[in-house]
Design a protein around this nucleic acid. Structure first.
Lengths: 215, 215
DNA sequence: GTCACTAATGACCAAGTGGTCACTACCGAC
DNA sequence: GTCGGTAGTGACCACTTGGTCATTAGTGAC
């Protein structure tokens, strides 16, 4: 394999790259997708720009050219949090199963690290500077969504729920071992629904009370 | 700052190290303690042998001499799992608060990364080969302890509880942000107790049913 | 004392990292 | 056509990593 030696010192026209696509947007998109993949698979610290570049079919120099730094690449690659999928206003009695179904569907269908919670957990131990804003974003989304549905005062219950979600995601997608990892998505929903109902019980009771009082 | 240049080629008797303790056991112990600290703080991948050596007051060469490799050092440094502290047979009615108190006491008093769950979470994203056996050990301990107390069939509930613990530990010791991180240990126990009671309700009911049937 | 044993050192290495930059060649505008 | 702007390249750099090893010096046995 011949290499280009000191292109600065001698012209080497035979040292052409194998192909050029020359499509900045497509390159950016390919790099971002590869970055999501690699960050989710390996965490921030162990992910390398070269591996991301390799999967995107470009050189690591181009990654730097487009994103400037590894950190900036992570920030742009992070999927938006959607941990509170399924939490929409509606009948409070069916809220727990909607939450459970939405959560399970989210973490099971996301595939290769698209889910914010998975990315969060995977990158957390590698880099706290990454974990903290990420966790804050996820938790803020959960607590705000729940506040909209259950009213103020539900934040701690939403936080506990978020913790349960993070733990379950960890069990199924990071550790991938143990009883929770063995369950089918349907079974998982079945076990989670009463647990969520129990966790949210005080907040739901409070919300129902508030609604009745208003009427 | 003069450096020892090529000690192999020229004798440099003036290049003596500042101190020598010459106590292999003490050195090993100091290295192991420093390793637990650094692994817990930074995760496996971002922990460096040099940092561990620095905190232990030795050179990184000595760490290699004693443990051979970073991986071996991790294996020897890992604290035993004790995630199920507080789960002992007794009155089933008070089990949830004993579990909550034991768990919170464990993660709050452990300080610098002594707790297995903290170490687990911190090293997980960096290295799955580390995370999987660690998680398996923690979960096995939790499920077996609960099986002894609540009988067979409680495994999934114990697994869910383990997930909640991992998530809460994550919130308080990794992310260190959000509503759960703000609570005092006492408040945390207060919120966790009913949540744990709710999570375990089916298993406790089953256990009480079994006990009554036996009588 | 002195001497063998070995704990401890620190210079060194190869590999791999994020980041830089001089250069190359594609493409659309004219 | 040709030409300027720029997408893309790859050699290079400084630095850090885990790991090696020749050398140095405490220490206990004698």
């Amino acid at each position: 394999m011949t290499t280009c030696i000191l292109s600065r010192m001698e012209s080497r026209p035979d040292c052409a790259p194998p192909r050029r696509r020359r499509d900045a947007q497509a390159s950016r998109a390919a790099i971002l997708e590869a970055a999501r993949e690699v960050f989710a698979e390996r965490g921030y610290a162990r992910a390398t720009i070269r591996e991301i570049a390799r999967r995107a079919g470009v050189t690591h120099g181009l990654v730097m050219r487009h994103f400037g730094s590894k950190e900036q690449l992570l920030i742009e690659a992070l999927p938006g949090p959607r941990a509170a999928a399924g939490v929409v206003p509606g009948d409070l009695a069916t809220l727990p199963e909607r939450v459970a179904a939405g959560f399970v569907a989210g973490i099971e269908s996301a595939g290769r690290g698209e889910h914010a919670v998975v990315a969060l957990i995977r990158s957390a131990a590698s880099d706290e500077e990454v974990a903290m804003p990420l966790y804050a974003a996820v938790e803020r989304e959960i607590t705000e969504t729940f506040r909209a549905v259950l009213g103020p005062g539900s934040e701690v219950y939403a936080g506990l729920l978020g913790s349960l979600f993070i733990g379950v995601t960890f069990a199924r997608h990071v550790a991938r071992t143990g009883v929770l990892a063995q369950l089918s998505p349907e079974e998982l929903v079945g076990y989670l629904t009463p647990a969520i109902r129990a966790l949210l019980a005080p907040a739901i009771a409070e919300a129902e009370h508030g609604t009745k009082r208003k009427q």
